[in-house]
């Protein structure tokens, strides 16, 4: 198989995630888009692991999966807090630091 099949697929996943993070208003959907980006990176790591016959790519993919689980836990807690304070899960209300 050609290396670029996997690399371009993961680049596509990453860019769709970037679009979602920038264009979504709902906090849960922003976190889902971040998951898309992390999966693109993981696919990249596994592809290079297969290319270079190195197991370290898979180990780091496992670490990223763990970090993603932690990130979703904390992120959803923050979205829940925003919902409780503003009566809405939208991130537009959180602009106190806007200049």
């Amino acid at each position: 198989m050609i290396m670029n099949q996997f690399l371009i697929l993961s680049a596509f996943l990453f860019c769709v995630g970037v679009y979602g993070v920038l264009a979504r208003r709902n906090g849960v959907l922003v976190l889902m888009s971040v998951e898309l980006m992390l999966n693109g990176v993981n696919l990249n790591l596994i592809a290079f692991s297969a290319r270079l016959h190195a197991v370290s790519g898979q180990v780091f993919a496992l670490f990223i999966i763990t970090i993603a689980a932690a990130e979703v836990g904390v992120g959803l807690a923050i979205v829940l807090l925003i919902y409780r304070n503003l009566r809405s899960p939208d991130l537009d209300g959180v602009d106190q630091l806007k200049g």
Partner: peptide, 22 residues
């Protein structure tokens, strides 16, 4: 209500990034 009003700039940014990466 799920999207904000940055849909067009977000699409431009994502497509630009995709083009550069490809």
């Amino acid at each position: 209500d799920l999207d904000n009003d940055q849909r067009f700039p977000a699409a431009v940014a994502a497509l630009f990034l995709l083009g550069v990466l490809v």
